[in-house]
Amino acid sequence: MISRESMKKIHIMGKRAHRTPLSYPEYKKIAQRYFEYTPKPEDADFLVFSFKLDMLENMEEVNDLLSKRPDMRLVILSEEPLWDTVWGGEFLSKKSKVLLGDREHPVVVLNHFTTSIYDYESIPYFVTTSDDYFARYSYLFSRNRNLKGSDLTALWGKASLRAAFYAENRDNPQYDVHFSSLDVWGLSRYRTLVAKGMAGAGVARVGQGWGETVRRQQLPDWHLDKLAALDRGVFFASGLENTHQWNYVSEKIFDAFAVQGVPLYFASADHGVMRLVPPGSFVNLYGLNPDAAIERLKGFRPDKEFLDRYLEAQFMLHGVFSNSMNLARERRRIVGEIVAEFEVID
Rank of each mutant, 00 (worst) to 15 (best):
I338H: 01
F91S: 08
I10Q: 04
L327S: 09
L155K: 07
N63G: 15
Y286P: 00
A44R: 14
E57D: 12
P39R: 11
Y125G: 04
S142R: 07
D176I: 04
T38D: 01
V203A: 06
S142G: 14
P220M: 02
V48W: 05
F91N: 07
G14Q: 07
A204D: 06
K196F: 04
G272L: 08
E42C: 09
L22Y: 03
M7D: 04
A167E: 10
V259C: 08
E90N: 14
L288R: 04
G197L: 11
I30S: 01
F282S: 08
V48L: 08
D255S: 06
W156K: 08
S93W: 10
L152R: 14
R216Q: 09
F342V: 10
P25A: 15
E79A: 11
K226F: 02
T153P: 00
E312G: 06
D132R: 07
F179Y: 15
A201E: 15
Y286L: 01
S122L: 07
V75H: 05
F46V: 07
G197T: 13
V206H: 05
L193N: 07
S160P: 02
L317P: 08
F254R: 08
F91P: 04
F315K: 14
G239N: 12
V320R: 15
P106G: 10
R145M: 13
H244V: 01
A228W: 00
D176P: 03
V75M: 05
V283H: 00
Y139E: 15
E104D: 05
L56G: 00
F254C: 02
Y24T: 05
D221N: 14
K252Y: 02
L317S: 07
L264I: 03
P21K: 00
A237M: 13
S150H: 03
L110A: 01
D54V: 01
G319D: 06
P21L: 09
D171G: 06
P263Q: 12
N169I: 00
Y24A: 12
E90M: 08
R232K: 15
E212K: 05
Y125M: 06
D291T: 12
D346V: 07
G88A: 13
R162W: 11
R73W: 01
P70F: 09
Y27K: 10
H223G: 03
L161T: 03
R301C: 01
G149D: 06
L66P: 14
A204I: 12
S3G: 02
K9H: 09
F300M: 05
W87V: 13
G101C: 06
P41W: 09
A237P: 00
S3P: 00
N289D: 15
E295Q: 15
N242V: 07
A31Q: 04
D131W: 05
R136G: 04
F235A: 05
K15M: 03
V127W: 02
